[in-house]
């Protein structure tokens, strides 16, 4: 784990005229599902842009087309299709898959898509069979539904009773969340700056006692607490941003 990534390297800003301190990302915590980091030495607009892009423009893979051959479940076709679309797929190899719009094929082909099939029938009496994302069989081992752990149950798609059957072919494609939320790579993005309200961008409303009614910011320890009666510097600009991406 590299605790410091120099943004200037990647963006090729080395030769630029800007001579100020280099923007810096400090990763505090990194797990499969979560990353907590601090971005500093940059503008608020830059930090927010990063947040917005993480939400909307990181390409991922999600099921985009569904061909339903047989659906005798109680759920409607389009509803199952919608549920399938929202199943998170492993998108680490998203770079290697083309957007369909950039591909030469007319609808879909192995270059721009991954085919998955769902073929489940409930045959047992008096049992409700759960159809989950684990029943999805992918044609490409790189693009499979992901789970939060080895024993985690899959994402529930439908429930079947005896005699009910689902026979579905799904086409997963690359896309961005701008187009549809199913391509969004992240859940919530925690974003915070100026935990002690030194910049006075906001005013904490309180009824009796501000300290009692407002919780302390979790990132408050990162910055020195302003002492009582410190003069207000209206030229200050935020330059340290705390992120937590799920």
């Amino acid at each position: 784990m590299n605790p410091q990534i120099d943004l200037t390297d990647r963006n090729g800003l080395q030769g630029d005229k800007w001579v100020g301190p280099k923007p810096e990302i400090k990763i505090q915590d990194l797990t499969e599902e979560n990353i907590r980091f601090t971005l500093s030495n940059t503008d608020l607009s830059m930090a927010n842009a990063l947040r917005r892009i993480m939400i909307s423009e990181v390409p991922t893979i999600a099921i985009d087309m569904v061909e339903i051959e047989l659906n005798t479940s109680v759920l409607a076709d389009e509803f199952i299709a919608h549920r399938l679309g929202l199943i998170p797929l492993d998108s680490t190899e998203a770079e290697k898959i083309k957007y369909t719009r950039d591909c030469s094929c007319s609808q879909y082909c192995p270059i721009c898509s991954v085919e998955m099939t769902l073929n489940v029938k409930c045959t047992q009496e008096n049992v409700t069979k759960d159809v989950t994302s684990k029943d999805l069989i992918s044609s490409d081992p790189r693009v499979v539904p992901i789970y939060s752990g080895k024993n985690a149950p899959g994402v529930l798609i439908a429930k079947l009773r005896k005699g009910q059957e689902l026979k579905i072919k799904c086409i997963a494609k690359k896309g961005v969340a701008k187009e549809h939320a199913k391509w969004s790579p992240c859940a919530a993005i925690a974003f915070e700056y100026d935990p002690h309200n030194r910049l006075r961008h906001t005013e904490y409303w309180f009824e009796e006692d501000e300290k009692k009614e407002w919780p302390k910011s979790k990132v408050g320890a990162e910055e020195p607490e302003p002492s009582e009666g410190e003069p207000f510097d209206y030229n200050l600009k935020p330059n340290k941003f705390y992120f937590n991406v799920e």
Binding site: L44, S45, A47, N48, R51, R52, F191, Y193, D194, H201, T202, E203, Y204, W205, F206, E207, K212, E213, W214, P215
Partner: peptide
Amino acid sequence: FNYHGNEPMYSGITGEEFRAD
């Protein structure tokens, strides 16, 4: 969380914190 249900919020467009919670 805040006792009264308020939270500081940030504009999604500029990233700036709102004046009021």
